[in-house]
């Protein structure tokens, strides 16, 4: 499993795009927000937690279709399916690799982009914590969506349609944690719920995703 993780990370770095594209997209969306809603600092402070979460979510969405599609095209997926690694483990590793190449950089970049949106300083630790806890769930749900659409020629758009409604709970709890943190309320319950959603996703979705992959390999 570690070999697969290392390979996927190496591929993501060598192919470029992996890290860079998602981050650049995140930056651009955040830069566009003030152009859309106006430069008033109070307004930006109010919407910053939600905008940062929505933008991070969309940035994570960009690279989802590559989680399995490339391995399916060149036959690696069929070969992995006959390897001693259980397919559930493959899914888990793929989701982890996706998180390390998109979710983690997005989390680390978010406080800097928070400055652009005049995010209140008290909210920054909560932003880091909620994105850090929540983005793994985005990757895992995304891996499930990617497993469903892996055999389709134009699965990208469909993947977004399938995955976005599944992102709703994570987004609600995650953004809520940051908003409460910004207002000085207790944000821990929201944060715990984000963690709960993530833990639940990692416990259940690898099985669903592996089942979908087996159907698609048939």
């Amino acid at each position: 499993m570690i070999a697969l993780l290392i390979r996927d990370l190496r591929l993501a770095i060598r192919a470029g795009g992996g890290f860079g594209l998602g981050l650049a997209f995140f930056l651009i969306v955040i830069v566009l927000v003030p152009f859309g809603v106006g430069p008033e600092r109070a307004v930006l402070t109010r919407i910053a937690p939600g905008m940062l979460w929505v933008a991070a979510l969309l940035a994570a969405l960009l690279s989802l279709d590559r989680i399995f599609a490339l391995d399916h095209e060149d036959g690696s997926l069929a070969l992995l399916a006959t390897a001693p690694l259980p397919l559930e483990g493959v899914v888990l590793v793929k989701a982890a690799a996706h998180w390390l190449t998109t979710g983690l950089p997005l989390t680390l970049a978010a406080p800097v982009l928070g400055i652009l949106l005049n995010l209140s300083p008290e909210a920054t630790p909560w932003l880091l914590a909620s994105l850090g806890l929540g983005t793994p769930a985005l990757s895992m749900i995304g891996a499930f969506g990617a497993a469903l659409t892996v055999g389709l020629r134009r699965g990208g758009l469909l993947l977004s349609l399938l995955v976005l409604p599944l992102y709703v709970p994570t987004l609600i709890f995650g953004a809520e944690a940051v908003r409460r943190g910004a207002e000085g309320l207790t944000a821990l319950p929201s944060l715990a719920l984000v963690g709960g959603v993530t833990a639940g996703c990692f416990a259940l979705l690898p099985f669903a995703a592996a089942a979908a992959l087996r159907v698609n390999l048939r």
């Binding site: 390979r7 591929l11 060598r14 391995d71 060149d74 036959g75 690696s76 069929a78 070969l79």
Partner: peptide
């Protein structure tokens, strides 16, 4: 199993 799609990664 081996077929013409043999899982070779071009960037490795």
């Amino acid at each position: 199993y081996a077929s013409h799609a043999d899982g070779v990664k071009l960037t490795l």
